[in-house]
């Protein structure tokens, strides 16, 4: 199995149990570099997929929570090199497949020649790159292909139908369906049109669909759940870690029953 297939598989296993998969986002090196690995294992035990954010100085798609955690992680000296080294050093490995969420520039600075091997060696299964639209991604896809890492595509409520179908076909691991126009972290109500939009994405996607941006509560997960294969929980989890609460308990609380 290629690394990227472990992501789809983990989501499908969770979905088969009648619950949407939980894709949990944590900022790398946050709340601090010493406790990061401990939290990572706890999150990986409770979630189905883990997304680790590589902190960047200019996170233009992120709201205030992830801006704050990114700044704190950078101030503590977190780099992509450190995150990869920390992941490579984990034994046993975290129980869930791992994705890196990074803006493009830290990846370019690391070097596209070295990145895929280094990521694969660290146990990473794929990437989400919020400022790399499909049209600019040929070099990245070509670099990731030989090691079988996923490049997850995002779709949004304003993506036109033809483009939606194209992006779903091009995506690997899962399709990241952004719930709303806007940045991460704002609490989103789940009106009927969002559920309908998720159903439209689901209808054209050959791989699992996960909804993300603004998902914070069990009510939202229950409402969105039937329409998708998984949900991404980011800012809310970062806030749990900021408050020093138990991330695993929070994640388990998102699932019903």
């Amino acid at each position: 199995m290629k690394p990227r297939d472990t992501i789809s598989a983990a989501i499908q296993v969770a979905r088969a149990k009648g619950q949407p998969a939980i894709v949990a986002f944590m900022t790398g090196g946050f709340p601090d570099r010493t406790s990061f690995a401990k939290h990572l294992h706890a999150v990986a035990d409770a979630a189905d997929v883990v997304e680790i954010g590589v902190p960047f100085t200019d996170p233009m798609a992120d709201g205030t929570t992830i801006q704050r955690s990114s700044r704190a992680a950078l101030a503590a000296g977190t780099t992509l090199k450190w995150i990869l080294a920390e992941l490579a050093a984990q034994s046993p490995k975290p129980k869930a497949p791992i994705l890196l969420m990074s803006y493009l520039n830290p990846l370019l600075a690391f070097g596209l020649d070295e990145l895929p091997q280094a990521a694969a060696k660290a146990g990473v299964s794929g990437f989400i790159i919020p400022d790399l639209p499909f049209e600019e991604s040929a070099d990245m896809r070509a670099a990731l292909e030989p090691v079988g890492l996923a490049l997850v595509q995002l779709v949004t409520p304003v993506t036109p139908p033809e483009r939606l179908a194209m992006l779903c076909k091009a995506s690997q691991g899962f399709v990241y369906a952004v719930t709303m126009t806007g940045t991460t972290g704002k609490n989103v109500a789940v009106p009927e049109e969002v559920v309908e939009y998720m159903q439209r994405v689901k209808a054209v996607s050959p791989i699992p669909v996960c909804a993300g941006f603004g998902i914070r509560s069990r009510e939202q997960v229950e409402r969105m759940g039937p329409a998708v294969d998984g949900v991404v929980v980011g800012s809310a989890l970062v806030e749990v870690l900021e408050r020093g609460e138990d991330p695993a308990a929070f994640l388990r609380g998102l699932k019903s029953g």
Partner: peptide
């Protein structure tokens, strides 16, 4: 080039 979040591509 055009390195923006997907939401801005149609705009």
């Amino acid at each position: 080039g055009r390195y923006v979040p997907e939401t801005l591509v149609p705009a």
